[in-house]
């Protein structure tokens, strides 16, 4: 299962156990991506880090 990186256009392989909203990294351009849909596999740029993000 693969989808297109919206940043660089390369093919990104999704893991077999991918879930919606999972964060992935494009191996080519390094940008963080969010799995928006599994059917069809669709990626968007992950949300940018916010000030209140953390643990």
């Amino acid at each position: 299962m693969s989808a297109e990186c919206p940043e660089c256009g390369s093919k990104v392989e999704l893991p077999e156990d991918a879930v919606e909203n999972e964060i992935l990294e494009c191996a080519l351009c390094g940008v963080e991506l969010e799995v928006i849909s599994l059917s069809p596999p669709t990626l968007e740029l992950a949300p940018e880090e916010k000030e209140d993000w953390g643990e």
Binding site: D17, V19, E20, N21, E22, I23, E34, A46, P47
Partner: peptide, 10 residues
């Protein structure tokens, strides 16, 4: 309760 799913959430 979550938003982005990182390795921990997965």
């Amino acid at each position: 309760l979550l938003s982005n799913i990182r390795l921990e959430e997965k």
